[in-house]
């Protein structure tokens, strides 16, 4: 697969949640963060899950990104159930199929932009020459040429989020899940980052699921889902018209 030109076939359902419930213990009480949620998204979709704080959107994102397990129900990745998989297998799936973008970027502070983006490839034991080729293409695609050797504390918020996006996309995953990717950015930079995500979605046909409480982000969505009190409510289905670089 070409490092910059990888592209999945659109349409096939790759991520599903079936009757997913998530409960937490809070002292003696059990708190239900998600209640019997059903969700499905296809390859190449750009889905925005919108909801206020405490609505359960981050809980849903954690379950969909396989870093947490549902109390009940099932999350299916590429049609295969995941809730009973051992932790090591889930780590493998996260490594190869899923890319994550965090609200606070979550870059490793002692690594340069290049090394942060390189990390998933090292986990996959990609040969050095191929790593170099893919990284050059990816960092160029997210507009980080010339900044490769800078550490996170030498980059602006927008640049850090671009590194995080490059890190998420470098292993050519089927799905990218982004948790409030614009929350720590000013509106102009946030718009640039969302535009970049949208462009990458169109270019690579990767499924993007973006969780946010920022109404501006929904402008980029093909499909918007609202979440409130742990339950999903269908939102708008439309073709996004905003693109930016």
């Amino acid at each position: 697969m070409n490092p910059t030109g990888f592209c999945y076939q659109r349409g096939k359902v790759v991520l599903e949640a079936k009757q997913v419930t998530k409960e937490y213990r809070l002292g003696q009480e059990r708190v239900q963060a998600l209640s019997s949620v059903d969700f499905a998204a296809g390859q190449g979709d750009f889905v925005v899950i919108n909801g206020p704080s405490g609505s359960g959107k981050s809980t849903l994102l954690n379950l969909l990104s396989l870093i947490d397990r549902p109390t009940r129900g099932e999350v299916l990745l590429d049609g295969k159930p995941t809730s009973s998989l051992p932790e090591g297998r889930l780590a493998d799936l996260r490594k190869t199929r899923i890319g994550l973008v965090f609200q606070s970027f979550n870059l490793v502070p002692v690594l340069s932009a290049w090394e942060n983006a390189e990390y998933p490839l090292l986990l996959q034991r990609v040969p050095r020459s191929e790593r170099r080729e893919r990284l050059q293409a990816m960092l160029s695609a997210v507009g980080l040429q010339g900044l490769e050797n800078r550490r996170p504390d030498e980059l602006s918020g927008g640049q850090r989020q671009r590194v995080a996006i490059a890190r998420a996309l470098i292993s050519e995953p089927m799905i990218i899940l982004a948790d409030e990717p614009t929350a720590n950015l000013d509106s102009a930079t946030g718009a640039q980052v969302m535009g970049l995500l949208r462009d990458l979605n169109e270019q690579h046909c990767v499924l993007f699921i973006v969780v946010t409480h920022d109404p501006a982000v929904t402008d980029y969505a093909e499909r918007t889902i609202n979440i409130r009190d742990g339950q999903l409510h269908a939102g708008d289905e439309h073709v996004a018209t905003v693109t930016a670089s």
Partner: peptide, 11 residues
């Protein structure tokens, strides 16, 4: 973060 990216416990 590292675990979320697919790093295993042993790693």
């Amino acid at each position: 973060t590292l675990r979320a990216l697919g790093t295993k416990q042993g790693q």
